[in-house]
């Protein structure tokens, strides 16, 4: 499979992932398991808080959250540290939810539809980056 075809397949599989399990019942399951209805994947609230501490972020610093899905865990890290946040992913359904989540933090926040393999950002412009269970 070519790189382009692989990218397309990955994008479609994640679009499918976020199109399902979006009901209130599914959100309640996520909240019970991970500690937040916004969370996606396997990172719990406690783990997101640990990441916030390890990344040594604070107000005025900038975090890139790659493959953020619904804004997780970047929105939580930004909320805890007061840093600025840029969340990126491909599925628009997930980014729509992320847009709601990222504004909860006090720092500046943006949501960008972008492929993690070819980021539309200049060199050396982030103080920290996070990505959970997304590798390509």
């Amino acid at each position: 499979m070519s790189e382009r075809a692989k990218g397309q397949a990955t994008s479609e599989s994640y679009a499918y992932k976020y199109a399902r399990l979006s009901s209130d019942a599914a959100k309640e399951v996520r909240a019970a398991v991970l500690g937040s209805a916004v969370a996606n994947g396997y990172t719990t609230v406690a783990q997101a808080d640990r990441l916030a501490g390890l990344l040594r972020l604070g107000p005025g610093m900038r975090l890139l959250d790659l493959g953020s899905g619904r804004g997780w865990p970047g929105a939580r890290i930004a909320e805890r540290t007061g840093c600025d946040l840029v969340s990126t992913d491909l599925p628009l359904l997930a980014l729509r939810d992320a847009r709601v989540e990222v504004v909860r933090s006090e720092g500046a926040a943006a949501v960008v539809c972008a492929d993690g393999r070819l980021l539309p950002f200049r060199d050396a412009c982030f103080d920290a980056a996070s990505h959970a269970d997304v590798l390509c």
Binding site: T43, L51, L54, L55, R56, L64, L66, G116, R117, L118, L119, F121, R122, D123, A124, C125, F126, D127, A128, A129, S130, H131, A132, D133, V134, L135, C136
Partner: peptide, 18 residues
Amino acid sequence: MLRECARVLRPGGLLAAV
């Protein structure tokens, strides 16, 4: 993706990858 992370991080910047 990791290569792009390295590129957009400032020198001394931190990555948390799971």
